[in-house]
Simulated assay, not measured.
Amino acid sequence: MFLEDESLNITDKVYHSSMECFGINAINPSQKQDSFELNYFEKGGFISAKSNTNYFIADYGEVGMHGKGGHGHNDLFSFELMLDKQDIIVDAGCYTYTGNLELKGEMKSSFYHNSLVVDNQEIAPQIGAWGISNIAEPNNVSFKDTDHSISISGNIKVTKD
């Protein structure tokens, strides 16, 4: 197994990403978390909180890429939630790109993600098969972390295209 090869393990620290990829039991069952680990990925626009039985991740990043729209999804402020090892709210992902462009467009939409839809409108209009308008930006994003809760707040700044 990958993690049993000592030449690949350069630290004793258990990283959140390795737990996501390989599962906590693959790392070391004695290192299970009893409290939440908060991970803030500022440049990627994600925040996650995880314990051994609960998981929450939220996307607060831009809709497109570096202000250019492009290969993004209308998933601003979408989230996933697992409580007591039970999936509650799950993002289905986008499992087709070139095989079915109409379905891919649907899977990139606000309606397909766990995000707020107002007046039956997309967060940002899709442009053709591959683009997305750069009109929606995360704004005033803040986090509050206490011993018993984690909260995220913010809003979406929409500009004219």
Rank of each mutant, 00 (worst) to 15 (best):
E102L: 09
V141A: 13
K50W: 03
P29F: 03
Y112G: 00
F2R: 08
V141Q: 11
E6S: 14
T159R: 15
K157W: 11
T159G: 08
I156P: 05
T11V: 01
E6F: 02
H113L: 05
L116A: 02
A58N: 05
H66T: 01
N139V: 00
W130Q: 03
I132Q: 11
D87Q: 07
I24C: 04
D87I: 10
S133L: 09
D75T: 02
E102G: 02
E20H: 03
G23F: 09
S30M: 07
K160C: 04
D161P: 12
S115F: 00
L3H: 07
Y15L: 14
L103V: 09
Q86A: 12
S142A: 14
G70A: 12
D12G: 05
S110D: 09
F56K: 06
Y15W: 10
L103A: 07
G23K: 07
V158N: 10
L103D: 01
N28Y: 02
E122K: 12
D147K: 13
A49C: 14
D84F: 02
E37W: 00
V117A: 08
S78I: 03
D84E: 12
T96S: 13
L101R: 14
C94V: 08
D147R: 11
G45L: 04
N120E: 08
Y112K: 07
M19E: 15
S151T: 15
E62I: 01
D91Y: 07
T159C: 06
D84P: 00
M19G: 02
F41T: 01
V14C: 04
T11R: 05
D59R: 15
M107H: 03
N100G: 02
D119E: 13
S18M: 12
I57D: 09
D5H: 11
K157A: 10
Q86Y: 01
G69H: 07
G72L: 05
H66S: 08
S30H: 05
N52E: 05
P29G: 08
L76C: 07
I127M: 10
N39L: 15
G128D: 10
F79I: 07
H73Y: 10
L83S: 06
T11M: 00
V14L: 05
G23T: 11
S17H: 02
D75V: 00
E6M: 10
S17A: 13
G70H: 01
P29C: 04
H71E: 09
G70W: 00
N9R: 15
I150D: 04
Y97R: 04
A92Y: 09
L76W: 01
I89T: 07
H148P: 00
L3A: 03
I10K: 14
K160W: 02
I123R: 11
K32N: 08
I89N: 09
G61N: 14
E4K: 15
Q121L: 13
H16P: 03
K104M: 12
S110Y: 08
K13P: 00
P29H: 05
E4F: 06
N100F: 01
S7I: 07
F22W: 09
L116E: 06
C94F: 00
C21K: 14
S78M: 12
S109N: 02
E37Y: 01
N100K: 01
L83R: 11
F79Y: 15
F46I: 00
F22A: 04
Y40K: 08
G154Y: 03
E137R: 15
A26M: 09
N134K: 06
Y60S: 14
